[in-house]
Design a protein around this nucleic acid. Structure first.
Lengths: 243, 243
DNA sequence: CGCGGAATTGATGTGCATCAACTCGGGTGG
DNA sequence: CCACCCGAGTTGATGCACATCAATTCCGCG
């Protein structure tokens, strides 16, 4: 499944680790020619496209360990812009060379398919979220996906800093800013979370998960037969492509 | 970009064209081990997952020329079921063998990446749709995407048969059946389309496209001259306001 | 400090869901 | 071949979740 050390070595040869990027910098812009994939090592990035009314529609947030740019392969040019939220260290992987390398390394090639396929899986989950879920369910799912992402990186799953604004969250979840704000306070009143501006402390992961599944406090005696699958709209990469 | 004839020959060797499948048959079911991709040659297929309440959540519809199964590569098992709507001829491509073959044929490999990436692109579009679009915009977008799909296959872009039920459409678009029904009749009243149960005739592609873009006739100014449809009594007040 | 954008909170509006009643057509069996 | 039924589709009435509008408050930053 993973790559052996020799494979890794060859992979590292083509990876260029850039100097740190700062808030507001672009990894690429809408319409740029597609050349590379980017792995986020530290910091965070958002991708977005302009909407008719000029505001931006957030496509996704990318946290450490995740990979940006997979949507552009077929079009040859980027269909969204990627902008740094929090100072970032990134690795750039020229796609052409990655492709060449992959054709000699079956395990890498397989990894690539998995990566792309997983991206599709995340999008599908996101579709579920936007399709029929309430505002509370969406925000709960969002918080848990951030939580899981930090957890995978060995950071706290319950206390973290949200690098994106309420406005960006609302755009990502397809809601109004005011709704996000209200639900943050509602969650706080119910002792589910504790919010201090961008710092968030999740106090009751279990209940948040229940909310995502559509279990809305009615019953204290909730019978759990459901396979609890985690919502993870964020885009994490395999260990084998790690720093 | 394409494959040369020699490549094609090798590809055809591993493709198995199945005997026709009929309404209700499965290409695969949720939880099945992932083995193959399926190309729809004729007919149509839906993919879906069960929801908490037991109803099905439609993930996608697949028409001739489209590929089913790309979402499962990474998980090794299918995360949705694929069920035949209309009698289908399909080709099955064992993924393992495709992968092997692709590693020897760079152009095929590249094609695979494009395919996967395109799937991501579709999903992203769908996210836009579900994120912030009105019911009318969603249905218009749906009709146009079906139209384009038929057009690509050399069939009529304006007259076709919808193999899916209103209920399935509503699930796909994240709306209620009743809403779909109402908008069908509203579109008909406005002479945008003509509906006879599952047969649909698109009368004004341009306006449908405008609707998707969020242009809702409000704007009499900024108005490029529309094709004026004759004798439209009373229903369309905006039209009588002009000229 | 003082300015301005971000966030919160309240008041009001509305698009769509939901509930309910009815129609239509297609399939089945007598 | 008709009577019946049943699910799919339509249509109307009502309710609600969330958007929108408006008014502060909060904080970061020059």
């Amino acid at each position: 499944m993973g790559l052996n050390s020799d494979d890794m070595e060859q992979l590292e040869d083509i990876v260029k680790c850039s100097r740190p990027l700062h808030r507001g910098d672009y990894l690429f812009r809408n319409g740029d020619k597609f050349r590379s994939l980017f792995i986020i090592k530290t910091g965070s990035v958002k991708t977005y496209t302009p909407r008719e009314d000029g505001t931006e529609r957030i496509i996704g947030f990318y946290l450490p360990g995740e990979i940006v740019g997979l949507d552009a392969i077929q079009q040859a040019e980027h269909i969204c812009s990627a902008k740094v939220l929090e100072t970032c260290a990134t690795c750039e992987i020229p796609f052409r060379r990655l492709e060449d390398l992959a054709s000699h390394l079956p395990s890498l090639q397989h990894q690539m398919y998995r990566l792309l396929s997983r991206e599709i899986g995340y999008d599908t989950e996101m579709l579920m979220l936007l399709g029929k879920k309430s505002a509370e369910e969406r925000l709960a799912a969002f918080l848990l996906s951030v939580s899981n992402s930090f957890k995978r990186r060995g950071l706290s799953a319950t206390e973290f800093y949200l690098s994106m604004s309420r406005h960006e969250i609302s755009s990502y979840l397809g809601l109004a800013v005011e709704t996000i704000s209200r639900i943050f306070t509602r969650f706080q009143e119910e002792n589910l979370i504790q919010v201090e501006r961008k710092y968030v402390h999740l106090l009751n992961l279990k209940r948040l998960e229940d909310i995502v599944l559509g279990i809305h406090i009615r019953s204290v005696h909730q019978n759990i037969e459901e396979p609890l699958h985690n919502e993870e709209p964020l885009h994490n990469i395999e260990n084998s492509l790690r720093d």
